[in-house]
Design a protein around this nucleic acid. Sequence first.
DNA 1: TAACATGACATTGTATACAAAATACTGTAG
DNA 2: CTACAGTATTTTGTATACAATGTCATGTTA
Lengths: 225, 225
Amino acid sequence: MNDQLELNMDAYLPLRDVVFNTLREAILRGDLVPGERLMELQLASKLGVSRTPIREAIRMLEQEGLAITIPRKGAIVAGMTEKDMQDVLEIREALEELSVQVACDKITEEEIAELQKNMKNFEHSLKSGDLKKMAQADVEFHDVIYRATDNPKLISMLNNLREQMYRYRVEYLKNPQNHEQLLKEHEAIYKGIVEKDKDAVTEMIRKHISNQVAVVKHMIREQEK
Amino acid sequence: MNDQLELNMDAYLPLRDVVFNTLREAILRGDLVPGERLMELQLASKLGVSRTPIREAIRMLEQEGLAITIPRKGAIVAGMTEKDMQDVLEIREALEELSVQVACDKITEEEIAELQKNMKNFEHSLKSGDLKKMAQADVEFHDVIYRATDNPKLISMLNNLREQMYRYRVEYLKNPQNHEQLLKEHEAIYKGIVEKDKDAVTEMIRKHISNQVAVVKHMIREQEK
DNA sequence: TAACATGACATTGTATACAAAATACTGTAG
DNA sequence: CTACAGTATTTTGTATACAATGTCATGTTA
């Protein structure tokens, strides 16, 4: 645990929420690695709070699938097997397809403009070589599509599914060979949405997702060793 | 709160889990109605435990979407607006379609036999007139399909989505006019899966879900008054 | 009467204390 | 050396205590 865990206290939030966000981000960033134990007392002293908010945060992480607790033994950071990843991607594909289809119907002019802006922004970020920036720009591109669905439940599920593989996904961007392909796909998705061509855009998003599968799978296979 | 809340202590489970299950079922059964406050001290004394497990259970309910908590004000049972229901059904349709498609590929002979058995069982339950039995039999029919996907994450998401509308869904069964239609749909889904005809079965499940929409919407509209 | 202070009470937030279980350690018997 | 019993330690589970906040009723003033 090399963690630089530290609480962001600026908000007037219950500690459980602050702890939850802190641990959540630490897990997604990889500061807390799969299998690592989440010990209440340890976390409590490290974060300078009591066990109570820690425990409540763990319950929340548990429901999000980021932690697994075994009664009377404690919680560990959830890891993903290759099978888990396959399962998640299967679901994600279905929901991403749904989201672009709904987006075709509901997207507004402003959102289309934003989508274009974020697409360009992603293109720039690729040139910058800054991985965090790329990942962020990619997220923002897809976020516009999510938001266009006007379905908060769907949005939160897609965000959750995306987060589940966030740890691995960054790797995908590390390889510049993927960049051109990625950009083309974004452009095709954008074009499809503008033209409201559901079939085309569905097909594109399907490719877009499944292109990531092989890479992520490979990484997990490595990790499982 | 007319509740007959009572803990089922037989299992060697942490109290938080027992409380969670108890509250969850009470909400799904409608013993705890949308908007009703979940007060820690009150629940604690009613269930004969301390506030700690209650609080942790509430955190879990929150993540499941069954409760909403406002910091420093407390938690209430989540209700569903018509829009919420539309949103859930939109997602559910996509995932139900996915599940039958995957099931077509992966279902085993044993599961097909079970599916048939549960279909028959559902038919019998309709004749019995026992609503609980019908709902249960219906759930069991669809469960076989879910399980056949061999995707635990998908299964739990579908179960969650189904639960979200469980309160309203029973109403659908109350009207005998719907029974014949329902049975036909089950038969068609069964047939489609046996024949591994993805297109047909996708279309059927789509109808099966959307047939429920109008009724549920109507109920919610009533409730919102 | 309406708006607002004030104080009692209720409820949530957080920390701590104690109990119960799991784990690690130690030493002994075979 | 291994297997195992027994004990100490760690860790989780649960209850409780106290603090902070929110709510509601009462009464006062304009």
